[in-house]
Design a protein around this nucleic acid. Structure first.
Length: 571
RNA sequence: CGGGGCGUAGCGCAGCCUGGUAGCGCACCUGGUUCGGGACCAGGGGGCCGGAGGUUCGAAUCCUCUCGCCCCGACCA
């Protein structure tokens, strides 16, 4: 492609509303343009990258035996009504009416639609298993679409749905997808982690997120530095601590006037925070629950919500605390607490701890689990950097991630509600067991840039680059132009895509644009080196502008082909 | 939805407080000089100042309403 004929409007300055690296670079380098909040146009280069992601995804889904279909984006409300999501999705659903007043919406995800296909078309165990997928625009009226392409109201997603005869089959389908996803993310050259995740309110049992590591990510994850273990902090585990034994000291009540917070009490009593039993009253489905963690730990709200049977973890109000403990906020403790008590493993390991006395301005010292109080010992604290890996002897580190894929087993959550069943070998009617597997295709375009960029622009991995080679000709010398044309044609014929900057621009302009656009290899033809019979070749990953390699024009084609072959092999 | 901010040329901004014929830089067009990391000179085109209503002789500027966008928070199968 000749630059002079392309639609490649690069900008020196990015629009001010681009607040993350990927959006700013996509706008500056002429890949996308914003149309509305969370709504973008893909210009030619943007579309090319999107297609690269799509085709890797398609190849691996097909390889894994999945079947591509295309479902409608406009859906009548009846399907979502069957599962209650017409209501449950609330304002996130883009709703509309047709001319007759009928209710419709744009599809935010397609479990109902695909389950509808399955219940009509799958009747026998002989039809199983099946995995159906599509690559399609999804619509969600996010309360706040932020982060440019990372979080859009219209976005491209690959969603796949597996149907199996039983749980064992579903597990196999899930495994197949796990392997396919690994291949997909590996091929895209991304630094990512497959992490254990909260399977959400939609009734999943097993699930894993594919998190692209980037400091700008919204998700916090922990990963072991020496083994494969990785988890979203929402569900992260750490090794269980040994239970406390005995406790030497006697339990004693001490006066701690007006010092409710751990920080203050620790200072007041001159004891380390690790000796404290932080006690927090939360609203449970069946009344107040006391959550006890070690003084230097934070409670994990998602874990707590699950354990106390509520949607969200809600702290008790001052009045509720008073009622439950008989003391002001800051003086709650497990000793003598009447309701349910959840004790974190590490809190249960504290010997002779300090905790609220359930009496305003008083704390208890010498408190030990088992001796002074009981409770359900579980993991209810946030796990973070430096904690012990639950799977090996290593320690955990923290990362920020961008969720780019999520796979999980759904079970019969949708199929049961929608009556999607089949006849098994014995003629017995059974409910289909489902799994679902998403990849944020358009999000991946942005996520890749979040991870692969430098001060000058985008640094595409070979497999996702819009063009493999960015050919810059300097000057308008006829011999140079002819050599460039030939190189362009030969490379294209060999399957290497070339963006040829044939504009009558100064070298600086061309180099700046080449860096911004981010193609993996830059080849410079013409100018000073032309007289020496050489071209200059520089990988985009090489930051030093002086470090271009001189290659004789005669062997240029072979050199580039060899480079491309090596790149292909790596992805 | 709560709090804050911004809408002026394709992009980045000034002008608004204190009303009086709309400006700068980049980009774009013409000509010339340049030519290895976003050149220079000269000339030029491009705006219903987000929209509606009001005040006024006169509104980008003041008032009211409205729409859009951004940030923080809530939210995110």
């Amino acid at each position: 492609m000749r630059f002079s004929r392309a639609l490649l409007p690069t900008l020196k300055e990015a629009p001010t509303d681009a607040h993350n690296v990927s959006t700013a670079l996509l706008l500056r380098a002429g890949y996308v343009r914003r149309v509305g909040a969370g709504i973008y146009e893909y210009l030619p280069l943007g579309l090319k990258v999107l297609r690269r992601v799509e085709s890797i995804v398609r190849e691996e889904m097909d390889r894994a035996g999945a079947l591509e279909i295309l479902m409608p984006a406009i859906l009548p409300k009846e399907l979502f009504e069957e599962t209650g999501r017409w209501e449950r999705f609330g304002d996130t659903l883009f709703r509309m009416k047709d001319r007759k007043g009928g209710d419709y919406h744009l599809g935010p995800t397609h479990e109902e639609v695909v389950t509808d296909i399955a219940r009509r078309e799958i009747r026998s165990y002989r039809d199983l298993p099946k995995n159906l997928y599509q690559v399609q625009a999804k619509y969600r009226d996010e309360p706040r679409a932020r982060g440019g392409l990372l979080r859009c109201r219209e976005f491209v997603m690959k969603d796949a749905y597996s149907f199996d005869a039983d749980e064992t089959g579903a597990r196999e389908s899930y495994e197949t997808m796990r392997v396919a996803y690994r291949r997909i993310f590996d091929r895209m050259g991304l630094n990512y982690r497959m992490v254990q995740a909260d399977s959400g309110a939609m009734g999943g049992s097993t699930s894993a997120e594919f998190q692209v590591l980037a400091d700008s990510g919204e998700d916090a994850i922990v990963a072991c530095t020496s083994c494969e273990y990785a988890a979203n902090v929402e569900v992260a585990e750490t090794r269980e601590a040994a239970r406390a034994e005995g406790g030497s000291g006697k339990r004693e009540k001490v006066l701690t006037p007006k010092v409710g917070s751990i920080e203050d009490v620790a200072k007041f009593l001159k004891l380390p925070k690790e000796r404290f039993l932080k006690s927090i009253v939360v609203r449970g489905a069946e009344g107040p629950v006391l959550v006890v963690v070690r003084g230097d730990h934070e409670i994990n709200e998602i874990a707590v919500a699950k354990l106390v049977g509520t949607q969200e973890c809600e702290l008790a109000s001052e009045d509720e605390v008073k009622k439950a403990t008989g003391a002001a906020v800051g003086f709650a403790g497990p000793v003598g607490f009447a309701g349910k008590i959840l004790v974190d493993f590490d809190a249960a390991a504290v010997v002779d701890g300090v905790t609220g006395a359930n009496e305003t301005d008083h704390h208890l010292v010498g408190v030990t689990f088992g001796k002074d109080f009981e409770g359900q010992v579980v993991r209810v604290r946030k796990v973070g950097v430096g904690d012990a890996c639950p799977k090996c002897s290593g320690t955990l580190a923290e990362y920020k991630g961008i969720e780019a894929g999520h796979i999980f087993i759904l079970g019969t959550h949708y199929s049961a509600k929608m009556n999607a069943s089949f006849l098994d070998r014995d003629g017995v009617q059974k409910t289909l067991v489902m799994g679902c597997y998403g990849i944020g295709v358009s999000r991946l375009v942005a996520a890749t840039i979040e991870q692969h960029n430098d001060a000058s622009g985008i640094v595409w991995p070979f497999s996702l680059a819009p063009y493999h080679v960015h050919l810059c000709t300097l000057g308008v010398d006829e011999a140079v132009m002819q050599a460039a044309q030939k190189l362009h044609d030969d490379l294209q014929a060999a399957g290497i895509e070339v963006l040829w900057d044939d504009r009558d621009e100064r070298p600086g302009v061309k180099f700046k644009d080449a860096d911004l656009v981010g193609c993996p290899l830059r080849v410079t033809l013409g100018g000073k080196s032309w007289a020496e019979g050489v071209a200059e070749v520089k990988a985009r990953t090489e930051a030093d502008p002086k470090k271009a390699e001189k290659v004789p024009v005669a062997s240029l084609l072979d050199e580039i082909l060899a480079w491309a072959k090596k790149q292909r092999a790596a992805h």
